[in-house]
């Protein structure tokens, strides 16, 4: 199978859901490691890092946000958050904590595997990347998978990196939220624009000298974002 060797770590306190999700993911040919609490998940991740982490936000003890933040401190692994509702602060808080994408309960297994595939694609498609781009002190090298600011390497998640590459390969042109959702996340028109907004914000804190007054990734009101060459 195509994804043999892909390990997915799931954190979910409801045993039935955990089992059902494992069945669905195993059907896709992925290897699943189940954990029932935040502590267990962090231990499991430290022992053997997974390729994708699926975290339910509502956990007893260490909650999903904390698990997400802890993993992010040491790893750029793709993280999917599972929230109860799409219109709560949970979504933004989860994205701020470092999640790459989110799903709302109840979701169909097809949706979940589509999200995981989109993330894995982002994580592994460096062969088709464009050549190195330079914008003043900012150097984006898709081949190496590295971003340098004043020659110093900046650590980005793959989603942030992909976002920067998309903006960089259209430098000076405005990309709408819908364009970015499609190019980076693989969503259609109705994808959640907050994904773009939060990731742009996180990207800015890493590459902008003054994130409150960005000079690389600028907002174009009514249209979207562009990378200022």
């Amino acid at each position: 199978m195509m994804h043999v060797g892909t390990r997915i770590l799931t954190v979910e306190d409801d045993e039935r859901i955990r089992t059902a999700v494992r069945l669905a993911l195993e059907d896709e040919g992925w290897e699943v490691e189940e954990t029932a609490s935040g502590e267990e998940a962090l231990t499991a991740f430290t022992r053997a890092p997974a390729d994708v982490v699926l975290i339910d936000i509502m956990l007893p003890g260490v909650d999903g946000f904390e698990v997400c933040r802890s993993i992010r401190r040491s790893s750029a692994v793709p993280i999917i958050m599972v929230t109860a509702r799409a219109d709560t602060h949970d979504v933004v808080a989860g994205l701020e904590a470092g999640a790459d994408d989110y799903l709302t309960k109840p979701f169909a297994p097809k949706e979940l595997s589509a999200r995981i595939r989109a993330l894995l694609r982002r994580y592994r498609s460096s062969e088709t990347m464009p050549a190195t781009m330079c914008f003043n002190q900012l150097e984006v090298s898709p081949e190496e998978g590295v971003v340098r600011l004043d020659g110093i390497e900046v650590h980005l998640t793959r989603t942030e990196f992909q976002l920067l590459v998309e903006l960089g390969s259209h430098a000076g042109k405005v990309l709408s939220r819908e364009d970015l959702l499609e190019r980076v996340w693989g969503y259609d028109y109705f994808g959640d624009g907050r994904l773009v907004d939060v990731h742009v914000r996180r990207l800015r804190t890493k590459i902008e000298p003054d994130p409150g007054n960005p000079r690389f990734v600028v907002t174009v009101r009514g249209m979207g974002y562009k990378l200022q060459p």
């Binding site: 409801d14 859901i17 059902a20 069945l23 669905a24 109840p106 297994p109």
Partner: peptide, 14 residues
Amino acid sequence: LRSPLMTLTTTVGV
């Protein structure tokens, strides 16, 4: 209702 529905949806998907 969300939790049982989550299990149901996933299981039916399987």
